[in-house]
Amino acid sequence: MKSAARMLDRMAGLLGTVAMAAAAVILAIATGHILLEIFLRNVFATSTYAVDEVVGYGVGSMTVLAMAGTLRRGEMIRVQLVLARLSPSARRVAEIMCALVTLLPVFLLTRTFVLSTMRSFREHTVSTGLLEVPLWIPEAIFAFGLGLLALQLAAYALRLAVDPDAPIAVADVATE
């Protein structure tokens, strides 16, 4: 059980790192696209006619792809008023509760995004811009990012429950 929990946790961590790298690439592409747009407009009085769509979906995708990794590294902020005052064992229970209660809406959202992706794919729904982006693409990225977050939360809760050496993946701040 313990080794299974550790493996699940390691897998979530690995996938989270990969997704985070993808998010950084998306950020760089968005920057490049805006710079290209500025260049085209000022030098050739033309445009890519797609910058708001590409950058809009890019920022959204970047955010969801980075969620699991950001949470794992303890950079998702929280109120520590109660948490920081708990004994180590109580803290462990509280962390498990936090992860599980967060898992509920995240799982619900993942499921909805999966369903929506399938519908957009089936019905060939596209964005209203010139680029006509098939909507299932950004929706699938959202489903993947949120699914990864759900996996990370589940792995975190499971490992805390069965593995006494599991670290609490929250960068602790000064006691409130």
């Binding site: 998702m76 902020i77 929280r78 109660v82 509280a94 936090c98 209660v101 967060t102 509920l104 809406p105």
Partner: peptide, 17 residues
């Protein structure tokens, strides 16, 4: 939700839901 120490993004989500 926020006081219990849930991550803030999740706490706000949970309040809404």
């Amino acid at each position: 939700f926020l006081g219990a120490g849930v991550w803030i993004f999740a706490g706000v989500l949970l309040v809404s839901v």
